[in-house]
Amino acid sequence: MRSVIAGLTLALAAVSANADIVVIVNPKNPAAALSADQVSAIYLGTATTFPDGSGVALADQPEAAGIRGDFYQKATGRSAAQVKATWARITFTGKGTPPKELKSDADVKAFVAGDAKAIGYIDSSAVDGSVKVALKL
């Protein structure tokens, strides 16, 4: 019984850890924060700039990572597959390039820390001073 409760507690902890996704930008980005609508527009290709007009470089998480589906569902109300279809339309009509797929939270963080135009999303537990949190989902 005790092990079942411990298991449930662990499972709950895992769920709540997964639930905390943050959208990160480079510390040099002048935007203090981004709204959910702004992040959605950027990740659906509707917006090609940050609110101040500067260009964006998008980072994505791996296909297999659970955070990818959670992020798209929360930020855009769409599944990762639906978003992929949206980017297929953009890619094959030459209107843009899809988010760059990186391997992990650490890689996304490094990408965002190294490019003033970058935006990405990671688990909140991975945040450090190299990046700025623009939105909590």
Binding site: A88, F92, T93, G94
Partner: peptide, 28 residues
């Protein structure tokens, strides 16, 4: 030249109807 402006020259697909330029992308 900027994130909001682009010009293309060559063989393109005209956006005659809403999905004309992506009408072959069955996946989308």
């Amino acid at each position: 030249p900027t994130s909001n402006l682009s010009a293309r020259v060559g063989y393109l697909r005209a956006p005659t109807f809403m999905y004309s330029d992506s009408v072959f992308i069955g996946y989308a």
